[in-house]
């Protein structure tokens, strides 16, 4: 459910890697480039530690791993977890797994969109929140579930949404 790759690429073409990002990527490459199946491994680790994989990073990683950029791009676009652009400071993922769907997930989607004034897969103008849907975070007994960053919030009531967000600056 991410934005289509074209849209994201356009928005980030100008994004150069920051020195910190480059350093993180270099460490990941140094530790993993030689391992079998390195493409996926490096991409998941960069996503985990940097938060996104911009086009310049893609080119850099492809070169370092000695794989065609097209291959890397193909892998990147296959998996919905990878992002090509940075997201807001806080990521809100509304669960739409079966349990959450049955217990009111769709309702929360409407409510969050209203409170934040953005649609799904969008980021608020101040860069504070990005809103997205996820499938089952494994807390179904607490349905409906919303994940904000690493916090799992269970039994979320639509009327509490605005209050919930206050904590995340």
């Amino acid at each position: 459910m991410s934005l289509s790759p074209e849209v994201e690429t356009q928005a980030t073409d100008t994004l150069a890697m920051s020195p910190e990002e480059k350093a993180t990527i270099d460490t990941i490459l140094a530790e993993n480039a030689g391992k079998p199946g390195a493409t996926m491994l490096v991409l998941t680790l960069v996503q985990e530690n940097v938060g996104y994989i911009s086009p310049p990073m893609q080119a850099y990683i492809a070169e370092a791993l000695d794989v065609p950029l097209s291959h890397l791009y193909g892998v990147l676009t296959f998996y919905s977890f990878f992002r090509m652009a940075p997201i807001g400071r806080h990521k809100i993922s509304i669960c739409l797994g079966t349990a959450c769907y049955v217990r009111g997930g769709p309702m929360l989607i409407e409510k969050f969109q209203q409170v934040l004034g953005i649609g799904m897969d969008q980021t608020t103008e101040d860069g504070r929140f990005t809103l997205e849907v996820c499938r089952c975070v494994g807390a179904c007994s607490q349905a409906p579930v919303v994940m904000i960053d690493d916090d799992i919030l269970g039994r979320v009531n639509p009327s509490d949404v605005a209050k919930l967000l206050r904590k995340y600056k």
């Binding site: 491994l41 991409l43 998941t44 998996y79 919905s80 977890f81 990878f82 499938r135």
Partner: peptide, 18 residues
């Protein structure tokens, strides 16, 4: 090793591809 949000990767041959 980490998956990256593709349900089909639970299928064994896809998982190994991944």
């Amino acid at each position: 090793r980490m998956g990256a949000g593709a349900f089909v990767c639970g299928e064994e041959t896809a998982l190994m591809q991944s």
